[in-house]
Design a protein around this nucleic acid. Structure first.
Lengths: 185, 185, 185, 185
DNA sequence: TATGAATGAGCCTTCATTCAT
DNA sequence: CATGAATGAAGGCTCATTCAT
């Protein structure tokens, strides 16, 4: 029943395929939003649909993978006590600006995948810990809670997900300037 | 030749149909989000799909009509010089919280329909005029521009469009509290 | 986005389409079993897939329609007190032999559609009522219950669903001869 | 070049793999029905898909192997002249009730695989031989042929293949009670 | 020889849009 | 002008089968 068109590149391709899928997903999500067709991700990665499903059975699971790469860098950075909330937020804002998949994590309201909550929790924990230590709290206002900071990031992410590619950078700058006032105000 | 299921109520019904469609769209958008199937709007309005298309060829055009009713109320209110920007924003925040169509307006992504920009412009104008008059400016900080205010509204709208129905109210409250600090800070 | 190939034959075609679908389903189910692709039914009926879904949203609902035609005849027949269980069974056996959709009804084990149970119940009721009246009971053995009769029909249906088209008739004859002994024995 | 996930256990493992596949297939068929995905059998056996295909190129061929173990036990039993048809049938009914693969054998639909017929023939032969000897015929009615007995088994198998797991036992009991009347009647 | 990843066909379902009546 | 059925493209997902390693 099957008539292969593309050559079977064999199991060796697995790791490469996985990486290609994550990269493709990052780009496709950025270009077309988190609701982009699954098939377009597979096409962008140059693999069959089945491969995408094998590696990432759900939309959330590939978003998770994209996000994983982001959060690892952030966690490494946060380890350093000299890094303040402000520094952390600067990184996150930057990632939100360039990576649409980040967006889905920040506000995991409508998902069934617990791992998303878990990753969101890691992120929130990072922020919470910094906020608790006066020396790492930076310039964040005393009456601002962790939830406020997360919501600020979520708003930034949400508005950027509705912004077309070329205005993204400028909108992000302006939006965060505003939110920053609130957190510091 | 055989009797149609619903009687053709003739041209007289056109205005009524239009109103029914707008009302139906308002409810459907609120219940199922802005991506709700077109057919569900026609069904809720009790008319055929063709009528929906006749009156509103695009999703944006019906969102526009829904929004039109909102903005007219806002404009009427804004006419009163005693109404400050704060008052205006309170109304808008309330409408954003309850009306999904508002979201589409405030951040017009679909550049095909120029009327969207037109309506957005009207909204922006209202805000701009209030801001220019010191007496109507209310408590908005001096260095806040019209663009900042609009962006704040857009962020609120964006984050709410990703929030599930039951948390909408609380998220709106928290988010605007934050944005309000920024505008007033 | 859509480029029509087939002409839109208009609403007038609805009734005809529905009938064509039922007929097509009857044939497709008979040829390829109850698990035949939905698309093949639409194709056989000469309509688009959407039409099939409009008329019959689930596989059960079209089976129901096919079955409905069968059961109505049976019910009319059963109204006559002169008709015995034997007569009734003769009809049912005949219909099971020729109509695969009947099969799905008799043993509605794995369905969520309550209407299937309802129709199965109608069928069972017919049999039960006949069995209760000594004059209509015919030659059915005294210790045979309604459940036994239904199970006999289910077995016939089940074995025929695994039988290829050309042996169906002969297998049906032989199988029912056997089951008949049991009911009468 | 890199280490495969599972070690290649070499040709020695072939026999073990075959046995594992048969056992896995027996369980998977019982749990998920005869239509269970091929991959699930390989997974349950702890081998790669390729091995499954190497040993059993078709679904029928593995069903055959599963069945082979059953029939051997039955043949051994049948060797004893003291065993009557009734005893034989009791065993078969039991196996049909618990083994989905049996169903595929008893009513070989797939005419591609001649070995299916061969196994079915062995089964039929066992029954025929018992029936021919008055002392081994047991209580089977004089006018019952081998074909009748086989058909009775086929009906049982067919109806059970449509029955959900938890009612299987009870349905089998009731169905065979009925068929038994016919054979003995 | 065993592994298990890759492939893509195929079925399911939804919905935007058209158009006969 | 209104109706709502028809249409088919599009996207989701599963799984039989192949084949590089």
């Amino acid at each position: 029943m099957t008539s292969p068109r593309r050559v079977n590149r064999g199991p060796k391709a697995a790791a490469g395929n996985r990486a290609a899928l994550i990269q493709a997903a990052r780009e496709v999500f950025a270009d077309s939003g988190f609701d982009a067709p699954f098939s377009s991700i597979a096409r962008a990665a140059g693999v069959g649909q089945g491969v995408l499903y094998r590696h990432f059975p759900t939309r959330e699971s590939i978003a998770l993978a994209v996000f994983e790469e982001n959060i690892e860098g952030i966690e490494a950075l946060a380890d350093d006590p000299a890094v303040t909330v402000d520094d952390l937020l600067a990184i996150m804002v930057d990632q939100i600006t360039t990576s649409a998949a980040f967006i889905a994590m920040i506000h995991p309201a409508n998902t069934d995948d617990m791992r998303l909550f878990e990753v969101a929790r890691r992120l929130i924990t990072l922020i919470a810990e910094k906020l608790e230590d006066p020396r790492q709290r930076g310039t964040i206002s005393a009456d601002i809670t962790t939830a406020d900071v997360v919501l600020a990031l979520a708003m930034l992410a949400a508005v950027l997900s509705k912004t077309d590619a070329q205005s993204k950078k400028e909108t992000a700058r302006q939006a965060w300037a505003l939110l920053d006032r609130a957190l510091r105000g």
